[in-house]
Design a protein around this nucleic acid. Structure first.
Lengths: 224, 224
DNA sequence: GCCGTACTTTACGCGCCGGTAGATAAGGCG
DNA sequence: CGCCTTATCTACCGGCGCGTAAAGTACGGC
């Protein structure tokens, strides 16, 4: 993690390899220090190269950060999308698979998650992060609109709620990774089940009646 | 909001009043520009005072930001706590009131919310924000442990999930405030009902059985 | 009307960091 | 074995923004 692959100062590497090294280092440093807190020198040091190399392979600091964002966002989204599978299956089953993939991605790409969700929400990158979040939420909205048989516009706020719930659970678990699971089951699966225990019945209730339990008022009016 | 009470440059004010002015301006600027993006000059300009005065009443930039954090955190927590009421009433009713208060606080203190949740999660203030979030989550955990009849350690992750869901819904609504409500009902109440529609049945199910719907596995084992 | 003091204007020091220019070596190729 | 391409380094510049110092100005009590 903290050690660079090449100890001697000078080693010529293929550009793509260097670029990957720099990106990895950038994700690590940005996740720990935040965008403003991270210096290009720190990224260079983490990558085991000198600063100008960072500029050669990563461009300016903004471009480098944007590159980190895009790569990690694509990784996360790909994982979730491919796990969700195609429409036609039971929505709650698809949702469960998607959630498992989401939490699993967390366990394997913690730095990327941190960069995406804790560091990038401010500054000129809010748009970038919003785009990712929106894509995930759209995915969830499709799923729910499909399962609930309601227009997407109605499902959208519920999708945001669901994604927020997943993030809340994820943040809790990241802060205390030993707290979930009995040690034998995959933590990601345990987390997905916990989340489904909370939101699953509500979603099912929304499917049957148009509103559930004590929340019976004008909740979902479908107005924009 | 953007206008200062005293147009002429010189006005002698009681220190506490000035301090409040400076704090208000700081919250506004920090919420718009972020911690690093905001300059002390900008805060001074927003408050309608000169920069040295900001340092007199607000201390260093870090201290000023911390002061903003504390004030807004206390405001939000007070609103939610006092709305939740005392134990003994039906947990879901208390939860509903707390949620309404939470969303209502959003509508009246948007800048404060933004500072707390979108600007302060990084840097030396992550601890401060974590403290607030933890206090709110603890509140929710008490509520759920009470209603579910389970140990707090078990209720804690569900509390995080619930708070995350509220934040997700809040962020969605802040991005598109016209999307919720039919125009006659209080948006905060509509949002609370929407959230309860999703998580209410799940919470009830957790109360009865020890797990709900398709999530039947080892989800809640009570292990630390 | 006069002093204390809250406040302003102005100017500056200083450290940090993004970004770059010019020197250096690494290694394939003949 | 020497040369040329180019990946890489050392060293540096400039700006920005925090924080403060110094000197002047008007408000309001006595």
């Amino acid at each position: 993690m903290t050690s660079e692959t090449s100890r001697p100062g000078r080693q010529r590497l293929a550009p793509e390899v260097r670029r990957r090294q720099v990106l990895d280092a950038a994700v690590a440093v940005f996740s720990e220090e935040g965008f403003h807190g991270a210096s290009m020198d720190a990224v260079a040091a983490r990558a085991g190269v000198s600063k100008p190399l960072v500029y050669v392979h990563g461009g300016s600091k903004d471009e480098l950060f944007a590159a980190c964002l895009h790569r990690e966002a694509d990784r996360l989204l790909d994982a979730v999308q491919s796990a969700a599978g195609a429409p036609g299956e039971a929505p709650l089953v698809r949702l469960r698979r998607a959630l498992r993939a989401f939490f699993h991605a967390l366990t394997t790409q913690r730095a990327g998650w941190t960069v995406l969700y804790r560091q990038a929400s401010t500054g000129p990158f809010a748009g970038e992060v919003d785009a990712l979040r929106r894509r995930i939420v759209e995915e969830a909205a499709d799923l729910m609109a499909d399962g609930l048989g309601v227009p997407r516009a109605v499902a959208l706020p519920y999708a945001h709620t669901l994604v927020g719930a997943a993030e809340g659970l994820a943040d809790w678990w990241l802060g205390d990774p030993d707290a979930a699971g009995d040690g034998v089951a995959e933590p990601a699966d345990v987390l997905a089940d916990m989340l489904l225990a909370v939101v699953g019945p509500g979603i099912e209730a929304l499917t049957n009646g148009s509103s559930g339990s004590i929340a019976s008022s004008s909740s979902v009016s479908g107005e924009r």
